[in-house]
Design a protein around this nucleic acid. Structure first.
Length: 646
RNA sequence: GGUCCCGUAGCUCAGCUGGAUAGAGCAACUGCCUUCUAAGCAGUAGGCCACAGGUUCGAAUCCUGUCGGGAUCACCA
């Protein structure tokens, strides 16, 4: 347990070194063996002198003296025994250790020699599948998808950077009643042009997913109108077209409304509305269409492939703009029947049990969860059945697969908890390597996004808007001379999307976040463009200086700002590992921001290209080059591009 | 009601396995471009870390409870 905790942010190598030296010297120094946990390092406070801090308190009991005395004793020992340590100071129970400048220069020299500094060798760790973006093919992608996709894509890159082989995948929910709704609405409502064609992306110029989404909305509109008419009939006491069971249910709900508060009445009204919707002819038609689809009715199937084809073309365009891609696609239409066999097998091994009506369940009460249905009484699959089947299938598709990451919103926390538990009980050892990368909802200042109420932020629109804004701002203040039009357009895209991605990724994925449209296109402060600007500025600087790396003299004088930067650079590897372990791009975002702030302070306070002293100049250029490289690396892992100039 | 997540500056967020006086950005106010990109830098102001107990030498961090916000508990997906 404790061995995995050895590396701490602050200069991991040195920390390790001192730790081991202390343990080895313990009998002499303390008169007893000491436990590893006694040695606690932390980062030195900014306002104190020091590169690493040892907490003295744990030693106080052992040495039976005051914190000050214990600190002094440790100080003396460390100063005289540890190479690379310049001196120490003891302040109220904390031993601040200062390393020599030569130590830090040597660190930078070593970094300079590593073009892939901080990254683990490719494919040095097992294969992991990362799933993100599980769109429905009945409507376009929106802001929520953007968080999902940027998050998943970034985590995939991060896992790759720490050495995993990664398979990026998405599930496409291409079947079901919601798909039939837009299909039906298109057949019913799409106008026919002079050539006798209904609307298509080709003859309207509309993006495929937008066109299909439009008819999904049309369906809902028609449904609402019809449902309202039915409710009006019910209100007037006319139940002639209504089955008696429904009639009774409606009357019961009506009766229950008496004497209730507004909220309860509204809830009951919703239930009545649900019943009314179920009575509509248009919903019946959609259901019939679904039945036909399942029976592979050629006409319905053709319509389905055609319209889904439009949607995929639209999605591809959106993904291309987002700069994300996938290695393997799973279509729900291929997988929705999976899982039943495993459930039947599971009954035999007593993982599941069957009720008299034929439905199959699992009892998870012993694990603190509920009983959960895994197969309906009519033998058809539920969502869970399918997920069990697909998970198992994926491990068959990729025999060297070690684990999976599902990027899915936190409203499904419970579902995945159950899913992983079931897989475990079915005896799949890899179930322990499955992780639900759960992220919080994206709220708007106006509240929750709701498609019904039209408060959804469309992904394409948002990206276009953000790029347009980047264009305006760049034309205002950018350094674009010598760039042709194509390069300029590319730059606007890099800045706009970079800002958007960074904005969505800098927040802890687990947390629900507020999307403020104005802040998302900000260029100052903790933003993507701020980091990109730093990168561009260093790039032109290095170009101007015609920089080439050479070994640095260990006697080069060093300023505190410069040392801070080397320290931050030294943290890159551990930060990356933590980001991978915690599936959190936000850690890398914050790291990069911190690095750039340190660099900017340095940049504003010294000369670099025009520095007269050759050693100092080379040192500052080398430092700049490493910051640029680590920054580009970190931004890359966030999916943010790093422009050469802006 | 059960379960899970969240509550840190006016706003949006950091704060790692408990550690020194709780940090940024935005918004407000001051300064700094005839030296390398000012999309920058330096500074001022702003906090009972929701509240109350507990554990500890030491708590924003761990435990319990209370209050607020959200999610989820379908033979929906």
């Amino acid at each position: 347990m404790t061995s995995s905790k050895t590396s701490l942010p602050n200069s991991p190598k040195m920390e390790q070194h001192i730790r081991q030296a202390l343990i080895a010297a313990a009998p002499d120094l303390f008169g007893a063996e000491i436990n590893d946990t006694l040695i606690q390092f932390q980062q030195t406070r900014r306002d104190m002198e020091g590169d690493l801090t040892l907490v003295v308190f744990p030693f106080v009991k052992l040495l039976r003296c005051s914190p000050q005395e214990a600190g002094d004793k440790l100080k003396q020992w460390i100063e005289s025994h540890i190479e690379g340590v310049s001196h120490c100071n003891v302040v109220s129970g904390f031993l601040n250790i200062v390393f020599t400048d030569a130590y830090w220069l040597e660190q930078l020299n070593q970094m300079q020699d590593q073009p892939n500094y901080g990254l683990a060798p490719a494919n040095s760790k097992p294969t992991v599948m990362v799933e993100y973006a599980s769109p429905n093919t009945n409507k376009p992608l929106h802001l929520g998808h953007l968080r999902n996709i940027f998050l998943g894509a970034s985590v995939a890159e991060i896992l790759r950077a720490v050495g995993h082989k990664v398979v990026r995948t998405q599930v496409i929910n291409d079947r079901g009643i919601h798909i039939c709704k837009s299909m039906l609405a298109w057949e019913k409502f799409s106008p026919v042009n002079a050539r006798g064609e209904r609307e298509t992306p080709a003859n309207t110029g509309l993006k495929g997913d937008k066109l299909v989404g439009k008819y999904y909305v049309e369906f809902d509109r028609a449904l609402q109108i019809e449902a309202k008419a039915i409710m009006a009939q019910w209100q007037s006491g006319n139940f002639s077209d209504t089955p008696t069971a429904i009639e009774e249910a409606v009357l019961n709900f009506e009766k229950a409304k008496e004497g209730k508060d507004d909220k309860a009445v509204a809830a009951l009204d919703d239930k009545i509305k649900e019943l009314a919707k179920n009575q509509t002819a248009i919903l019946q038609e959609a259901k019939e269409m679904l039945v036909k689809w399942e029976a592979r009715d050629p006409q319905v199937y053709l319509l389905w492939t055609t319209m889904n084809g439009w949607v995929y073309a639209g999605f591809d365009q959106t993904y291309a703009q987002m700069g994300v891609s996938f290695d393997k696609l799973y279509y729900e239409s291929d997988t929705f029947l999976l899982g039943k066999d495993q459930v039947m097998e599971g009954i035999k091994s007593d993982v599941f049990y069957q009720k008299p009506d034929g439905s199959v369940w699992i009892d998870l009460t012993a694990d603190g969860l509920d009983e959960k249905l895994v197969l309906r009484s009519d033998g058809t699959a539920v969502y869970m059945t399918q997920d069990i089947g697909t998970a198992i299938d994926r491990f068959k598709d990729f025999p060297d697969l070690h684990g999976m990451v599902y990027t899915v919103g936190n409203e499904q926390d419970y579902h995945f908890k159950v899913l992983f538990l079931i897989l475990q009980k079915l005896g799949y050892a890899w179930a322990n390597n499955c992780f639900h990368l759960s992220y919080g909802m994206v709220d708007l200042p106006s509240g929750k996004m709701k498609s019904r109420e039209g408060t959804v932020v469309d992904a394409d629109d948002l990206m276009a808007e953000v790029i347009e804004k980047a264009k305006e701002m760049t034309q205002e203040r950018g350094h674009l001379e010598g760039l042709d039009n194509a390069a300029r357009e590319q730059l606007y895209t890099q800045i706009g999307l970079g800002g958007l991605k960074y904005y969505l990724l800098k927040v802890d994925p687990k947390k629900r976040m507020l999307f403020n449209p104005e802040e998302s296109i900000d260029l100052t402060g903790n933003t993507g463009p701020f980091l990109q600007y730093a990168h561009a500025r260093i790039s032109t600087l290095l170009e101007k200086a015609a920089f080439g790396p050479t070994p640095l003299s260990l006697t080069t004088p060093m300023r505190p700002e410069e040392k801070e930067i080397i320290k931050q650079l030294a943290l890159f590897g551990t930060t990356l590992e933590e980001a991978a372990k915690g599936y959190s791009p936000a850690l890398l975002a914050n790291y990069s921001y911190e690095l750039v702030k340190l660099y900017n302070t340095f940049y504003q306070s010294v000369k670099i290209v025009i520095e007269p002293d050759a050693d100092v100049r080379q040192f500052r250029l080398s430092l700049s080059a490493k910051v640029r490289q680590v920054l580009a690396q970190a931004l890359g892992l966030l999916g943010v591009e790093a422009p050469q100039r802006m």
